[in-house]
């Protein structure tokens, strides 16, 4: 299985990773090699096999509806790249 340049570019858009033109041939090659490795899966007979999402056959525990968190804005925003008036800043989004 090889990945086309178009597919690679589409996936990069979805993943929000900018690719420079000179990176693309090597990435195409690497990803195609990885997908070839992964293609071994198609040989496996998985008829009537349930997918396994978690190794333990456990069920979710639910939390009581009680407030346990307090305001830590100052600590959290001390490590933020850009804030103002308590808001996180991003380049203006046009709706």
């Amino acid at each position: 299985m090889t990945i086309s340049r178009a597919d690679l570019e589409k996936v990069a858009v979805l993943a929000r990773i900018r690719l420079d033109d000179e990176q693309i041939p090597a990435l195409e090659n690497d990803l195609s090699n990885i997908l070839s490795l992964v293609d071994q899966l198609s040989a496996a007979n998985t008829d009537n096999v349930e997918p396994l999402a978690h190794p333990l056959d456990a069920v979710q525990r639910l939390r009581a509806d009680e407030v346990t968190e307090s305001n830590q804005r100052e600590a959290f925003q001390a490590i933020a790249p850009a804030t103002e008036s308590g808001l996180y800043l991003v380049p203006r989004v046009i709706e």
């Binding site: 996936v11 993943a15 990435l27 990803l31 997918p51």
Partner: peptide, 29 residues
């Protein structure tokens, strides 16, 4: 980056069953 791109590809429309679901079934085996 390689792994993010591979993972994004494996989950994307048209590939989910062949890759992700298949891998989870093999995981059970």
């Amino acid at each position: 980056k390689r792994r993010i791109l591979v993972g994004t590809y494996a989950l994307s429309a048209g590939y989910f069953d062949a890759y992700y679901l298949k891998a989870q079934k093999v995981r059970r085996l």
